[in-house]
Amino acid sequence: MSHATIHHGVDLCDVDTLRDVMTRHDAFAERVFTPDERAYCERYPDPVPHYAARFAAKEATLKALGIGLTPFGVDRALQDIELVRRGRAPALRLAGRPARAARALGVFSRAVSISHEGERALASVVMLAEAPE
């Protein structure tokens, strides 16, 4: 019988904090979110809660993978984690450093769930990886 290890990350994003930062810096959305993520969020009258859910998903993914953002720099890892839609269900697309980290861990399956209500957005990411020998 084969065994797997579970990697879990969860993150909560404050919608008002994100709104303030996005208002202050015009380039924020372009540097942090992918074109498809921006197109999805901008369909809504108030896109910020949707951006917040995606930001939480990126953070939760980084936590599940055990990688941290650089405090000095606008980390491209955020662009390399994309929340995509498969029907109504969200899924994760990884590239760059997050994809390398997932390969190194032996991740073979992953799931993401997001929610937002009021001033909070939440994301939870679960990854299954091959158990170390």
């Binding site: 202050r24 810096h25 924020f28 405090p71 720099g73 606008v74 491209r76 890892a77 760059g96």
Partner: peptide, 18 residues
Amino acid sequence: LDINFRLESAFGVQVQTQ
């Protein structure tokens, strides 16, 4: 992110991304 965007704007530079 906020701090880095502020510094980029103050000095007119682009900091590293990883």
